Amino acid sequence: MTNDQHSHSPGLPSVGSLVRDTWNGRVGVVMDRIGDRIALRPQGGAVEWFALPGDLEAMPLSEGLTELVRAANARSRGEQA
């Protein structure tokens, strides 16, 4: 199955969608579906992680931008985001 087919599967977020992983609270961009898991990457880049589709909730773009600003502010204070 191609990425295109995955991105249009009912109930699954499409590639490029912004989601929150409710299992760990992280926000990420959907990169791909591999088996029964969804590959996610933090908005600013970094190491991908995998989540179950049932643990994902869609996020509005405005909330995603807020997350980026929060992370940038934390980094500027020397904190881990």
Rank of each mutant, 00 (worst) to 15 (best):
R70I: 00
S76I: 08
E63A: 15
A72C: 06
R75E: 08
G44V: 04
E63Q: 15
L61W: 15
A58I: 09
M59G: 07
D21K: 09
S62C: 05
G28F: 05
H6T: 02
F50N: 01
R20S: 00
P42Y: 07
S7H: 07
V47L: 13
V47R: 15
R77C: 06
I38L: 03
M1A: 09
S76M: 14
D21V: 07
A72R: 14
V27E: 04
G45H: 10
Q43E: 11
D36W: 07
R33H: 02
G25C: 07
M31P: 00
G11V: 11
V27Y: 05
P10R: 13
D36R: 15
R20D: 00
L18C: 09
R20E: 05
A71R: 09
N3S: 09
R26E: 04
I38K: 06
Q43H: 12
A74Y: 03
T2Y: 07
W23P: 00
Q43L: 15
A51L: 02
G64N: 08
A58L: 14
D21G: 07
A72K: 12
G64C: 12
L18W: 10
G45T: 11
D32N: 13
A71N: 12
I38D: 02
E63N: 08
T2R: 13
W49Q: 02
L65Q: 12
G54K: 11
L40H: 04
I34Y: 02
S7Q: 10
M59H: 12
R37G: 00
L40T: 03
L68T: 12
L52H: 14
Q80P: 08
L18V: 14
V30Q: 08
R37V: 02
D4W: 02
N24Y: 05
L68N: 10
V19Q: 11
